[in-house]
């Protein structure tokens, strides 16, 4: 195992950074998209509700791999014709973002629904518009309540980023596959890769637990 690690360390490290990069982009992208679709789903406008519900149902009910291959095999060639090259990394990260955003939308929507309607009524009666009340009063409280579930989604996201391996995304998993093929030592290669994934996911788990503890009991 040590010899694989020593020999392929630069390659593994490259993949490790690609996985982190893809995960960070997808994390922020899916958090923003998920929040937008969650708010659309609790709005009083029927059209925005239908758009959001459709989006969420489509993306959380199709396998991530299918979404990613769709972008890689169909959207990428079309985009290339109009001068927008989409490589494996981009296709994979887009797929990961859209897929995760559907789950995050559900997490935040249920967070919003768990905040008493008296918060919204108090805010709009105080002169705030519905949007302002959502932004300053309801959403901050909904995020706090959603922290444990968001943590799960973020950890899943990092693990799901291995989908990049299927579209030549040059991530950790992609490099692991190639190393395993060269060395004929799958067991040790994937063991090393598992440790690399843990290096990313464990701090996320720990940090989300820490946040949860900090907000426990009060809404500070």
């Amino acid at each position: 195992m040590i010899d694989i690690l020593l020999k392929y360390f630069p390659q593994l490290l490259n993949g490790f950074w690609v996985t982190i990069e893809s995960s960070i982009i997808a994390l922020f992208g899916s958090l923003i998209l998920g929040t937008i679709f969650a708010v659309m789903q609790v709005s009083r406008n029927k059209i925005t509700r239908i758009i959001s519900e459709t989006y969420v149902e489509i993306f959380r009910n199709i396998p991530l791999l299918v979404i990613t291959l769709f972008f890689f095999a169909f959207v990428a060639p079309v985009a290339k014709k109009i001068g927008l090259p989409i490589d494996g990394f981009t296709a994979g990260t887009i797929g990961l973002t859209l897929y995760t955003s559907a789950f995050i939308a559900e997490v935040i929507r249920s967070g919003i629904n768990s905040i008493s309607s008296s918060q919204m009524e108090g805010a709009v009666s105080n002169g705030l518009s519905w949007w302002q009340a959502m932004r300053y009063i309801v959403l901050p409280q909904a995020f706090k309540i959603s922290i444990p579930n968001l943590g799960n989604q973020f950890v899943n996201l990092v693990k799901n980023s291995s989908v990049l391996a299927f579209v030549a995304g040059l991530d950790l998993m992609y490099n692991a596959n190639s190393i395993a093929q060269n060395t004929f030592d799958s067991l040790n290669t994937y063991f090393i890769v598992a440790i690399f994934y843990l290096i990313i996911t464990m701090p996320i788990s720990y940090y989300m637990k820490h946040l949860e503890q900090r907000f426990k009991g009060g809404a500070h």
Binding site: S118, Q119, E121, G122, A123, N126, Q141, K144
Partner: peptide, 23 residues
Amino acid sequence: FQHFNLYDNKSTLENIMLAPRIV
């Protein structure tokens, strides 16, 4: 309101200052 409906995520002072600031 009967049940006050204060903003649970804001201090007393912020409860009072928020709407005048924004609106």
